[in-house]
Design a protein around this nucleic acid. Structure first.
Lengths: 207, 207
DNA sequence: CTTAGAACTGCCTGAATAGGTGGTTACTTT
DNA sequence: AAAGTAACCACCTATTCAGGCAGTTCTAAG
C-alpha cells in the first residue's frame, strides 16, 4: 500500500487527485493540506510514502517546503506539481530534493503511474519538464570552444587550486610553459583571470 | 508524418521496433542501419525527424554518434536506447545532444509515445534514467556548507572575474572588508585561493 | 626551400592575492 | 556589567598572477 499526502491550496485540484488516487487498490490518500505549515502541524507526513506538493503555495513556497520535508522525513518521495514550467523553480525544487516534477495538466492514468514510479525509485517527469532538465545538461555555448588536451589538463588543475608552479610540476613544463597555455585558455574563453576561467569552464562543461 | 531512422546493431531489436512503429498511422521508419557509419554513408538521415540510436554500437559509439548527427542535422531529435543505465554514458550522450533516453525494455506503447513526445519538443526518459539525471542535480555535499548572503554575493563576483578592488566597489566595502569575507569563505570551503573556491562553489551549487 | 604556426622557454614589471596580526564597533549572551 | 562574537577596517610581507615582448625548436604546407 502506498500512502499519499497532498499539499495543494486549490480545493478542486486536491479533491480531484484524491478521487483519482483513492480509486486505486494500492493507493491511499491519508491526508490533504492547504499549505506546508498545516502539514507540519499534523502528524500524517510521518506515515506517508509519497507527497504531492504544489509549487505555488500560500506561506512556505513549495520549493522551500520540499527541503523541510526532506530534512524531517528523508524516506519520503516528494513530487512537485505545477502549472507553470518556470526553469528557476524547477531547478530549485530538484536541488532541494524533489524526485519528480509533474505538470498539473497530467492525465489521471499518468498521475497514478507517476506515484508508482516514485515509489519504485524512479523519477516521474512530464516530458516538457524533462526537456528543460536535459537542456541544462547540454553545453550552453552556441559557439563551441575547443580546448586542447593540455589546456583541459591545466584548467582542471587550476580548478583544484594549483598555482602555476604546482601545475608546472604536474605537467612537466616550465612555469612559463604553463603560462603559455593559460594565456591561450584566456583568449579562447575570453576571460582574464583564473577564477573567471574556471567558472566559465565549469559552467560550459569544458572540464 | 514522423519519419524515423533506427540505428541498432541487433537485427531482432531493429525489426521489432520497425514493426511496432510502422504499425502506427503517423509514424514511418524510413531507414535502418547497423552502425553510425552506415547511416552517414546513406542519405536518409536528412529526411528523418526522429532517430532511435543504440548506445553500444560497433565502430562509432552511440555517445559520439549523437554528436556527429546533431552537427550534421541539427533539426533531428535523437533518442538514445540502452540496456545498461550507466551514469557516465547517460551524461555523455545528453551532453552531446540527445533529447531522450530510453531503456530497451520499454513497452511498445511507451515507445510510440516516446516518438510523439520527442517530435513535440519534449524529452522522453525512462523513470530510472530520469532518477539518475535528477540525482546529479541535487547538492552533492553530505555536510552542507552554509554561506552568508555577503559571502554568496562576493563568491559570485569572484566567479565573474572581479578583483578584490572591483568587488569592494560593487558591495560598498573596503578591500579589506572584502578580504574578511573571502577569508571566511576559504575556511568554510576548506580552500586557499580564488579558483578553487569558485570551482567548489559551482560544483556544490553554492552559487 | 622558405614560410608559417604551434608549442614551448625566458625575463621584466606592476598589480593582485594570501596569510598574519591587530583594532573598532555594535549586538547578544551570561 | 563583562565577555563574546560577528562584521568590518588597516597594515605588512611574501608569493602569485597577468600582460608585454623576445627567442627557440619542430613540423607541416606552399
Amino acid at each position: 500500500m502506498i500512502n499519499i499526502v497532498i499539499i495543494e491550496d486549490n480545493k478542486y485540484m486536491r479533491e480531484g487527485w484524491k478521487t483519482i488516487l483513492d480509486f486505486e487498490q494500492d493507493l491511499c490518500v491519508i491526508a490533504e493540506y492547504e499549505s506546508c505549515e498545516d502539514a507540519f502541524e499534523d502528524t500524517q507526513l510521518a506515515k506517508a510514502n509519497v507527497v504531492l506538493l504544489d509549487i505555488q503555495l500560500p506561506g512556505i513556497h513549495g520549493t522551500e517546503g520540499v527541503k523541510i520535508i526532506r530534512d524531517k522525513f528523508p524516506h519520503l518521495s516528494v513530487m512537485m506539481v505545477t502549472i507553470h514550467d518556470d526553469d528557476e523553480r524547477i531547478f530549485k525544487a530538484l536541488k532541494n530534493g524533489a524526485i519528480g516534477y509533474l505538470s498539473k495538466k497530467i492525465s489521471p492514468d499518468d498521475l497514478i503511474d507517476a506515484v508508482h514510479i516514485a515509489q519504485n525509485g524512479g523519477s516521474p517527469m512530464s516530458p516538457n519538464i524533462a526537456k528543460k532538465v536535459i537542456s541544462s545538461f547540454q553545453a550552453s555555448t552556441d559557439v563551441d570552444i575547443e580546448l586542447s588536451d593540455a589546456e583541459v589538463r591545466i584548467l582542471t588543475l587550476l580548478a583544484e587550486g594549483y598555482s602555476y608552479k604546482g601545475i608546472s610540476k604536474e605537467v612537466f613544463l616550465s612555469v612559463d610553459g604553463v603560462r603559455y597555455h593559460i594565456r591561450n585558455i584566456y583568449n579562447k574563453l575570453e576571460v582574464s583571470n583564473k577564477s573567471e576561467a574556471v567558472a566559465k569552464a565549469l559552467r560550459d562543461k569544458l572540464i
